[in-house]
Design a protein around this nucleic acid. Structure first.
Length: 285
DNA sequence: GTCCAGGGATTCA
DNA sequence: TGAATCCATGGA
């Protein structure tokens, strides 16, 4: 077992040919449980805690607690995916090229489906900083683990706690949504696998059936939790950016933008969305 | 005090 | 079908 060695000295993950921008990947609103610490990031991956730091020669990985293999981290960051087709789209579009030039190596993370569901239920009409705070509160109050390093509570754990507690932790009107989704999944754990095996259209329909999940959140769940790159979540940032660059500032509905993007960028629409979202929020485009 | 945030559900025309 | 309206909360 290599975990003790990784824990002591850290290992170096080699970079893929199409690169990695660790900061943009972790800090672009995909995951809510990671924290920046002296130049790197720490967070839970699989059954343990990892610290990651980007160096010129690769990513330095240290295991802080539990079991995390280098292979798990490579998979989490999806380092084996060839981003050439994404770069071709971004580089060939004058509106998107600045996002590529600034954030080349931004990757879509392979997140745990339950955590993606929960995280984006929390995200509705909320801001990233508050979502992160609520996420941390849920871990601290209900998660397995010791001290600071606590996991996000599983569906059974969340289903078993009183809705009033969730409101105390700042969830507001989202409390019953998360509570009911947790209850359903604790009783129907195979629902995740059914979604995983389904076509995009059927998966979308199934995710939309959860309380508190509408079109935007459903596409986030499919994109970040199930790697359905044709999903194109349209939030207020994406709507603004798309209106500006592709609709001459015209008023268009989120659904119209979503259909347009899927038609234009096809099976990579979700990747385009991530670059657009991050660059837009950072004021790059 | 007002506006905004990775929106969704409900009501109303 | 599509447009208002309400929903909790905290920072700007």
């Amino acid at each position: 077992m290599s975990a003790p060695r990784i824990r002591a000295a850290g290992v170096l993950l080699g970079l893929p040919p199409t690169g990695l921008d660790l900061e943009a990947t972790i800090d672009s609103g995909q995951v809510f449980g990671f924290h920046g610490e002296d130049g790197g990031w720490r967070g839970r991956i699989g059954r343990g805690w990892a610290a990651m730091e980007q160096l010129p020669e690769g990513v330095r990985l240290r295991v802080l607690q539990g079991e995390v293999s280098a292979e798990e981290v490579r998979r989490f960051l999806d380092l084996d995916r060839d981003l050439t087709p994404v770069y071709a789209i971004l580089g060939g579009d004058p509106c998107l090229r600045p996002a590529l030039e600034r954030y080349r190596g931004l990757r879509l993370i392979r997140q745990d489906p339950w955590e993606a569901l929960a995280g984006f239920i929390l995200s509705s009409n909320n801001n990233v900083k508050r979502i992160q705070r609520i996420w941390s509160s849920l871990c601290a109050r209900l998660g397995e683990g010791q001290g600071e390093l606590r996991a996000f509570p599983d569906p059974a754990r969340l289903a078993g706690c009183h809705e009033g507690l969730l409101r105390e932790l700042g969830l507001g009107y989202r409390a019953p949504y998360l509570s009911r989704t947790a209850l359903y999944l604790s009783r129907n754990p195979l629902a995740i696998e059914v979604i995983r095996e389904a076509s995009y259209e059927e998966a979308l329909e199934r995710v939309l059936a959860f309380p508190g999940i509408g079109p935007k959140v459903a596409d986030c769940v499919l994109l970040y939790g199930f790697q359905r790159f044709e999903a194109f979540p349209v939030d207020v940032w994406i709507l603004r950016a798309m209106r500006k660059h592709y609709f001459r500032g015209r008023r268009v509905s989120p659904e119209h933008v979503r259909r347009y993007a899927r038609r234009r960028w096809g099976s990579w629409a979700g990747y385009v969305q991530q670059y657009l979202f991050h660059a837009s929020r950072r004021g790059v485009i």
